[in-house]
Design a protein around this nucleic acid. Structure first.
Length: 104
DNA sequence: ACCGTGACTCTGC
DNA sequence: TGCAGAGCCACGG
């Protein structure tokens, strides 16, 4: 696979999300100048190599939940990384966007 | 070129 | 709250 121009633009925005903060797929798309491209954000993150330095784990859905398949290794990894940055998950596996949401 | 597929989101019941 | 339904849009086959 080769990354498309859209992928790069999305990665650039994700790279800006500070530790301990999160952004939604839709928010990332918008900041990348691609309103309506929320699904493409997920597609772009999926293409990242495992060793990447891009903080892909700081992207969650609009409900403050992890969108990766429940119980999957990647889902677990994402939650661990976020918790390691001080982010707290509610009982319902969701985090507070008002508390941890990134406001550029 | 057509069609199904998503790490999505918003609306409405 | 929770969950379909319907838009959404670039990709891959």
């Amino acid at each position: 696979m080769h990354p498309t121009d859209i992928d790069y633009r999305i990665w650039q925005v994700v790279a800006l999300i500070p530790p301990g903060k999160v952004a939604s797929y839709g928010q990332v798309a918008q900041l990348a100048g691609l309103p309506g491209y929320a699904r493409q954000v997920g597609t772009a993150l999926r293409k990242l190599p495992e060793h990447t330095k891009i903080p892909w784990h700081r992207v969650v859905n609009a409900q403050g939940a992890i969108s990766l398949p429940a119980g999957s290794p990647s889902n677990t990894a994402q939650q661990s990384r976020l918790e390691a940055e001080g982010i707290i998950f509610n009982p319902g596996q969701r985090l507070s966007l008002s508390r941890f949401g990134w406001k550029p």
